[in-house]
């Protein structure tokens, strides 16, 4: 469905994603996991065409989205949906208008039909009856669910999820995780989920990609990842601070810095 070939991205001197090959299979949930700063969100933005790669190509079916015109890319995006990390609901619109937004923009459906579709999508996320609320009146979990409904309202072929459960309480996170899983299995949707929530990622994904320092260090089924012998994979899956992935980002030992400061004093 989506392929990245020799795909890389740098911001000035900072390499966010080292050149890599990636394949997102159709009608399946692919979880891209990794620690903070591992390049997974940048990879998601490259795959969705939100970011231009420094090198390489992204293929959406047979089309190279890195080489296509902006107009063609916007046309293609009518088949895509995205749930952003902080929901990204349009502040000036209420819940109804946010969810109905893609329908108003890209279809000629009559308002009563749009009203029904929106109502159905909001029922699916458990928020029917909250149409009049503004984004500022929603909790984080509710905003994520509205964003989910908005992403699904056009029945897209592919949906990208950027940290769908981050910052949510366990119940809200569970609801979102179940929604992704249920929707993907019911409508045969292709989903790409970026998350550092190991349990959520492994429970909903058909395929898992694990990243560290802008590189893919493991890929396979959730079982493959759980049974991996790679020490980095095991450290991440078990959430241990000790291991090949350093917890501390400091370049010098703290005790050396303290001693040097003492000597200077």
């Amino acid at each position: 469905m989506i392929r990245g070939e020799h795909l890389g991205k740098s911001f000035g001197d900072v390499v966010a994603v080292r050149p890599l090959d990636i394949h997102i299979p159709a009608h399946a949930v692919t979880a891209i996991m990794g620690g903070s700063g591992s390049g997974k969100t940048t990879l998601l933005r490259l795959l969705s065409g939100l970011e231009k790669p420094t090198c390489g190509h992204v293929w959406f079916g047979e089309e190279d989205i890195t080489a296509m015109s902006e107009q063609r890319l916007f046309k293609l995006r009518e088949q895509m949906g995205m749930v952003f990390q902080y929901s990204a609901l349009l502040n000036s619109l209420n819940v109804y208008d946010n969810v109905a937004f893609p329908l108003h923009e890209h279809t000629s459906l009559a308002e009563p039909v749009i009203r029904r579709v929106v109502s159905m999508k909001l029922e699916q996320v458990g928020l029917r009856g909250f149409e009049a609320l503004m984004p500022s009146e929603l909790s984080g979990g509710m905003a994520k669910r509205v964003a989910f409904a908005r992403a699904m309202v056009m029945d897209p072929a592919v949906v990208f999820f950027d940290e769908p459960t981050s910052g949510l309480d366990p119940i809200s996170a569970g609801v979102i995780t179940r929604l992704i899983h249920d929707t993907a299995s019911k409508v045969q949707m292709t989903a790409v989920v970026v998350t550092h929530d190991v349990q959520a990622g492994l429970s909903i994904a058909d395929h898992v990609i694990l990243m560290w320092q802008g590189e893919i260090i493991a890929r396979g089924t959730p079982e493959d990842i759980r049974n991996s012998t790679d020490a980095r994979v095991q450290q991440f899956v078990q959430g241990r601070p000790d291991g090949p992935i350093p917890f501390s980002r400091s370049t010098t030992p703290y005790i050396d810095d303290l001693l040097q400061a003492e000597m200077r004093a």
Binding site: E70, F74, R77, M82, A88, L90, N91, F101, E105
Partner: peptide
């Protein structure tokens, strides 16, 4: 600027709105 910070501009792009 706030639309940029809160990714609303990116959300518009993803909804095929320039």
């Amino acid at each position: 600027g706030i639309m940029r910070v809160t990714e609303q501009l990116d959300a518009l792009r993803m909804m095929a709105v320039n």
